[in-house]
């Protein structure tokens, strides 16, 4: 027996959350960068628990979307990859949160 459809519910609302942000690993990266001004690769890797390869892959996608700025520098002779959430990234995170909260509130109990 199927449940009656909830008035106002719309599958597109749930599907409308941005998949780029919705992926758990990338969401963790964005959330981690949202609370700092800047951070390096090692810090983000430790905080998110992602593997080196996994994090690199996610950062490539986020950088391509313009959500994370990546700067390669050196500290003495040691390379450092510095990551910073862009304004577009902050806005994407904010939008994702609002849409998810809205979508979840429409789900049947």
């Amino acid at each position: 027996m199927s449940a009656d459809p909830v008035p106002g519910s719309d599958p597109q609302t749930i599907a409308g959350v941005e998949r780029l942000v919705h992926e758990p690993g990338r969401l963790a990266v964005l959330a981690c960068l949202a609370v700092v001004s800047r951070a390096d690769f090692l810090y983000v890797m430790r905080e998110t628990g992602l593997s080196q390869g996994n994090l690199s892959s996610h950062l490539s996608k986020l950088e391509a979307a313009g959500y994370v700025a990546v700067e390669k520098t050196f500290v003495g002779k040691v390379p450092r990859t510095v990551l910073q959430l862009t304004e577009a990234g902050r806005e994407a995170l904010r939008t994702y949160r609002n849409r998810l909260v809205d979508a979840l509130s429409r789900l049947p109990e």
């Binding site: 001004s37 800047r38 090692l42 810090y43 430790r46 905080e47 450092r80």
Partner: peptide
């Protein structure tokens, strides 16, 4: 930075 950057990474908190 000298203590942490090569151990737990580098992060700047907001001003």
């Amino acid at each position: 930075d000298r203590l942490t950057s090569l151990r737990t990474g580098y992060a700047e908190l907001p001003l």
